[in-house]
């Protein structure tokens, strides 16, 4: 199999399967979560603040008072990583073409050099966060193989994408294939690892905000 064939396979059947497992997995996991249901809260809420859950979905991205100072590495590393990843996924022109072909939606892209810089930042942040995970006793205790697996499968698309763009290690078509395969690995694993927080974070933040909001506390 030559490199173009590999690329065609990566963009073809491999991608199809990965996307299908991803879609089925995400829906399945959401069913798993919502299917458990919960009892309605019969206590009269302090005030009608119907937006508290939705607000917390966003506001929880901001560190509460004093927390940034307590663990700057996690917060700053987390910001840099997530923003870098977000820019790379959604604002690199070729990626937008992917979304356009799947959904028909498209939006303006960023200059490639800017995306490139954000990828470098995200990779560096991942490195720092791994070192932090290994050095911080709480993180180390909490971490299992799943955490390191999630770290690795998140790093790979960033790394292979960067290497493909800069023609490092392998020739472009091969590296591009590896990049796409790494994304497929990520797609397949996402619903079934902690990476599912990509989706569930909005659910958990909503409940948190709603629970606190009923008690009159902005969380």
């Amino acid at each position: 199999m030559n490199h173009l064939d590999l690329l065609t396979f990566a963009r073809g059947s491999a991608l199809n399967w990965a996307l299908m497992i991803f879609a089925a997995g995400v829906v399945l996991r959401l069913f798993e979560i919502f299917g458990l249901s919960r009892k309605p809260d019969l206590a009269r809420p302090r005030s009608d603040s119907p937006g508290s859950g939705w607000r917390t979905m966003l506001s929880r991205s901001i560190p509460p008072q004093g927390m940034l100072k307590r663990d700057p590495v996690t917060y700053i590393g987390g910001y840099v990583f997530h923003l870098g990843l977000l820019l790379a996924i959604f604002f690199f022109a070729p990626h937008i073409e992917f979304f356009r072909s799947m959904t028909g939606l498209h939006w303006p892209n960023l200059p490639t050099a800017l995306v490139d810089a954000s990828v470098v930042a995200a990779i560096a942040a991942l490195g720092v966060l791994l070192a932090h995970r290994l050095n911080n006793k709480v993180k180390r205790m909490l971490s299992g193989s799943g955490d390191y697996l999630a770290w690795a499968v998140t790093l790979l698309p960033l790394l292979t994408g960067y290497m493909a763009y800069h023609h490092l290690l392998f020739e472009y078509a091969l590296m591009l294939s590896l990049h796409i395969f790494s994304v497929e690995l990520l797609l397949v694993l996402l619903p079934f690892t902690k990476l599912f927080h990509t989706f569930s974070v909005f659910v958990s933040r909503w409940y948190n905000g709603d629970f606190f909001g009923r008690k009159g506390v902005a969380s």
Binding site: V26, R29, M102
Partner: peptide, 26 residues
């Protein structure tokens, strides 16, 4: 098709997979 576009994946394929996921979810 741009190189970054899937060769053959479609949104209806995703919808089908989501339906399978929903059935399994039920």
């Amino acid at each position: 098709k741009a190189l970054s576009m899937p060769v053959s994946a479609t949104s209806s394929m995703l919808a089908g997979a989501a339906a399978v996921g929903a059935a399994a979810g039920v």
